[in-house]
């Protein structure tokens, strides 16, 4: 193989790359271009015409900014909830679970083995009005007699949190696992308290995992529509619900396409802002 590469070294990588990259170019890049093309059309279904209709974007924002804002608020809360739930868990797995680590890691990815829609529907069983959770909360007067959990903002955010928790947990685990135990011993030898050792050694070293996990959780969460559709009401609709309904139900392609680009742009801005904050904290810390 080595001599083969050396003799025709210029061509080989391109031969290996071209089928796969061509697939990505034709079915990822080209479709995005078509989406842009659709977003600048005007007219009524089925006769949309390309007219550089940039007002689609401004109209989409003014019509659907509540759903857009809601998507980012829900995704933000869910991301924080995922971090709070996942960090102590993977910390425990990395430092305390010993030889059972892999088994607990498997438990983290196990929800992925149940179809996304089905595990979301399972929360309908759990949070049902006649179910044990609502019963317990009413009995302890956390919830009033006629209050419920289903079809509330809580249910939607809880669903998103549950569905994207593994995306937060796995990158943090990877960064914790790479920490040299000797560093923690050194901190101890230098009379750092366990809390100090955690704050000054473990937490900064796991920061790359937190950053990766935050992005991997936030991006899909902001585009999600399944949790809002199954666990919420029209009052909890996110931008994904609007895009989905416009594209597949009312066949309003220009609005749906411009909303898709607005979602992407908004995510990009959020990610860049986050990168700035994370970067500047690192600089000052």
């Amino acid at each position: 193989m080595g001599s083969f590469f050396h003799r025709r070294k210029g061509l080989v990588p391109y031969l290996l790359l071209s089928p796969g990259l061509a697939w990505l170019a034709i079915f990822f890049i080209v479709p995005l271009a078509y989406l842009g093309y659709q977003s600048l059309k005007s007219g009524i279904f089925p006769t949309y015409e390309f007219t550089w209709e940039f007002s689609n974007y401004t109209e989409a924002v003014s019509d659907y900014h509540p759903q857009l804002v809601r998507s980012f608020v829900y995704a933000g809360i869910a991301t924080v909830a995922c971090l709070v739930l996942a960090y102590p868990l993977v910390y425990w797995i990395a430092f305390r679970a010993g030889r059972w680590r892999n088994l607990f890691l498997l438990a983290i990815v196990a929800p992925f083995f149940v179809t996304y829609l089905i595990r979301t529907l399972a929360w309908l069983n759990i949070l049902a009005d006649e179910g044990p959770v609502v019963g317990l909360l009413q009995w302890t007067h956390v919830l009033g007699e006629d209050e419920r959990l289903l079809a509330t903002t809580f249910a939607v955010i809880a669903g998103i949190t549950y569905n994207f928790l593994p995306f937060m947990a796995l990158p943090i685990y990877v960064s914790l696992e790479q920490i040299e135990p000797r560093l923690l011993e050194a901190a101890k030898d230098l009379y750092a308290s366990p809390v100090q050792a955690f704050l000054r050694v473990t937490l900064p070293l796991s920061a790359p995992g937190i950053v990766a996990g935050t992005l991997l959780t936030f991006i899909p969460a902001a585009g999600d529509f399944i949790n809002a559709e199954l666990l919420g009401t029209p009052k909890q609709q996110m931008i994904g619900n609007v895009i989905q309904a416009k594209f597949l139900e009312s066949l309003d392609y220009p609005t749906a396409a411009s909303l898709s680009f607005i979602l992407m742009a908004a995510i990009l801005v959020a990610v860049l802002a986050y990168a700035r904050v994370v970067g500047s904290e690192k600089l000052t810390g």
């Binding site: 479709p31 989406l35 585009g223 529509f225 994904g240 895009i243 898709s260």
Partner: peptide
């Protein structure tokens, strides 16, 4: 986001 992949396809 998956929804953008789906919509563009």
């Amino acid at each position: 986001p998956e929804i953008v992949l789906g919509a563009s396809l």
